[in-house]
Design a protein around this nucleic acid. Structure first.
Lengths: 230, 230
DNA sequence: CGCAGGGTTGACTAAGTTCAACAGTGGTGG
DNA sequence: CCACCACTGTTGAACTTAGTCAACCCTGCG
């Protein structure tokens, strides 16, 4: 599962500036001169890794979206994180004993690059900037998760969903890729499929949002923002 | 606010093994030979720092409990984390631009030690182990927050509360310090005061738990565990 | 004593879940 | 090519849960 596209050369990688290696100074670039990673494609529904597995690999998502899920005591899955292009994932492997604490599944056709933990650790010994970058990513992640927590914890279903949609599409008024099923959305937001369906249906009727295939458009941002604040 | 108790010498600190410096090897201990921190006491309700402030300090809690809260767009607070003895907090300061992203408030009389970010950063340049330890703490934090998220996201109120209590007291059958008001508990779990009150009252009537002053005992762990799984 | 704050309890309400039926879509195989 | 099936999403009605509002208790404190 997963098709090897080729070797990526980190030094010349187009997304390097936004990747973990974006932190390197000119003078340090030589460190990754011969750093290569495997660039791999996956199809919708493919599993990149499973909770509990322990490959020594960390990933950077280049294109598409991925969900990270976690299993409860009682066997039902909860989506803990949605990974977007440029994001690092699977970094729990940086903890010595670590096995993956999530299952990573492609929500649409994706492209990612694999990084060997071993190599990365070697790099960390040579550059403080890399360590700093990793710490920053981890702390950013804490903040995002806490944000998610506060939203899920104290917002009612409508504002919660509205908030999520606003987050997702960002600033554009354009149609945006939205490869998330109702089921996944419900799990992610701690609601049921039906509730999601009802709210989106209502908003579509009111012309606040529109949806076609896997594309989402927010037509009336103000209205949605209004709903998000209540 | 906050009473200076004295200078703590990290090298000989009784809680060093469980602190950030627990990671240091014998050979590296000299690094913190003259490392001193201020040990400070706070009273119940005292604020250690406020969201948005930017003192260059990181803390390790030595005794007591602290809550970290965060304000929503609309001004209501959500408790994001409960800090326990031995825990590191305020480490968002490790991000260059960082201001504190929480408000830290003492739930009971506490004792903590202050660590200068500057000094810590200096230390990080000298010891890879410190970096590793920080990364591990940050990732642990991500995991804990995600755990909290899944509990709040997909459990009903009873299992949610039961799960929290089990977490809180840990393995002991003993009475455990429980300095959390109903209000705080409600905020932390994303419920209302009344719901909390009703459930605890019911469980007390059934003899599953008992509470006196600031002490909590789980009398029938199995029953509570049973409730947590549904 | 009177008051404020935290906690408990009850009655009512609103919100969201559950259950169930049904519609649309895509894929498979005869 | 169509019939059938599986899957996802939509909609309605009944039901359950937790939130809301309000009264009340208890404790500590000025």
């Amino acid at each position: 599962m997963g098709t090897l596209v080729g070797q990526g050369h980190c030094l010349t990688c187009p997304i390097r500036p936004s990747s973990l290696f974006g932190c390197l100074k000119e003078s340090e670039l030589s460190l990754i001169e011969d750093f290569q990673t495997r660039v791999i494609k996956f199809e919708t529904g493919d599993i990149i890794y499973n909770e509990g597995e322990s490959l020594g690999l960390i990933y950077t998502l280049r294109a598409g979206h991925i969900k990270l899920t976690k299993f409860n005591n009682e066997g039902n899955a909860q989506i803990v994180r949605l990974v977007r292009p440029g994001d690092l994932f699977g970094y729990e492997k940086l903890i010595s004993s670590g096995t993956y604490m999530h299952t990573a599944e492609a929500l649409e056709p994706i492209e990612l690059c694999q990084l060997s933990v071993e190599k990365l650790n070697h790099l960390r010994d040579q550059s403080g900037a890399i360590n700093q970058a990793i710490i920053e990513r981890a702390l950013q992640q804490v903040m995002k998760t806490e944000d998610h927590l506060t939203q899920v914890g104290l917002l009612k279903s409508k504002p919660r969903l509205a908030w999520f949609l606003l987050q997702w599409v960002g600033e554009t008024a354009e149609a945006v890729s939205f490869p998330i099923s109702r089921r996944d959305l419900a799990q992610y937001l701690g609601l049921t499929i039906e509730t999601i369906s009802r709210h989106t249906a209502e908003w579509k009727r009111q012309g606040i949002i529109s949806e076609s295939k896997n594309l989402l458009t927010i037509s009336d941002r103000d209205a949605l923002q209004e709903i998000a604040n209540s």
